[in-house]
């Protein structure tokens, strides 16, 4: 009996010691993220791979729209940039526990995410699109037709593709995957009816596998603002980023880079 008692005291004290450690994150950060990055001489950016926002090229270096944006941002700040590729479903916890300064990772600004992080003004807009299997879901041309209980839609977990699919085609069954590549493979195998994903990947996919896949809709069915995500209670940093974004909308840098990565395929030989 005594042994059991002592044993539970030790267990309880271990738990009691770890709980306060979990609570300390909510304290206000001393000094803004920007000030710290300038002092360190490096801006640490969290991101995940999304074609063509950010990708690994043949030499293992990161390339893509987002990478250009982050590099220009750091250059304008006069410091170095460092990328931390992070799994998408753990990217917000990683930001909150200070694994990096900012997420520049094609993150859509949503109300739900705003409860955890603060966003800058949009530096780009993304749109969702749908690509379907020719045999499993033939000849459809509107989203409504996908809204059937026996339809299965594959998405990448934790993305706004998941949110969009839930909202626009609520009756269809969602299948969530860790990586987009797995979602598309499931579609090619004919195990799901369609994949909802951020443009332009669905269009590329339909072009590459044109015997089996097709695009039911022209263009995108949502328009989502994309922003930098930073930790809460850091207005200095948000203002700083907003000014930078406004300036780079004006001088055409953001539009020019967007056109290069999203409207052309000149970069494809760098990756494949």
């Amino acid at each position: 009996m005594k042994k059991v008692f002592l044993f539970s005291i030790i267990l309880a004290s271990i738990i009691a010691l770890t709980i306060p450690a979990m609570g300390t994150e909510t304290k206000v950060a001393e000094g803004s993220t920007i000030a710290k990055a300038l002092k360190r001489g490096t801006l640490i950016v969290g991101m995940d791979i999304f074609v063509p926002w950010a990708m690994k090229d043949k030499k293992g270096n990161l390339v893509g729209f987002e990478i250009d944006v982050a590099k220009k941002l750091a250059k304008d700040m006069g410091i170095e940039v460092e990328f931390v590729p992070t799994k998408w479903d753990g990217i917000i916890p990683a930001l909150l526990t200070k694994k990096f300064d900012v997420i520049i990772g094609s993150m859509s600004i949503t109300e739900k995410r705003k409860t955890k992080v603060d966003f800058s003004d949009p530096y780009e807009y993304a749109g969702m699109s749908i690509v379907a299997h020719k045999k499993k879901a033939p000849g459809l041309s509107s989203l409504k037709e996908f809204n059937q209980p026996d339809f299965e839609i594959a998405v990448k977990m934790g993305t706004t593709a998941e949110t969009a699919a839930k909202k626009m085609i609520p009756k269809a069954k969602l299948r969530r995957f860790q990586d987009e590549a797995q979602a598309y493979q499931e579609l090619r195998n004919g195990n799901v009816h369609a994949v909802v994903g951020s443009m332009p990947k669905p269009a590329y996919e339909a072009a590459e596998y044109e015997e089996t896949l097709y695009l039911p809709l022209e263009g995108t069915f949502t328009k989502e603002p994309i922003g930098f995500a930073v930790r809460k209670k850091d207005p200095t940093t948000v203002t700083y980023f907003n000014e930078w974004i406004a300036k780079n909308w004006e001088n055409g840098f953001l539009q020019e880079r967007f056109d290069y990565w999203f409207r052309t395929l000149e970069w494809e030989s760098m990756v494949k």
């Binding site: 690994k56 590729p85 990586d179 590549a181 494949k272």
Partner: peptide, 24 residues
């Protein structure tokens, strides 16, 4: 530990898959 983005073999593999969609 690839889930906490330590850049070991599995993690690098998933990065290549996400970039090139060459999975199997």
């Amino acid at each position: 530990v690839s889930v906490i983005s330590i850049q070991e073999l599995t993690f690098q593999g998933t990065q290549i898959m996400a970039s090139t969609y060459v999975t199997i």
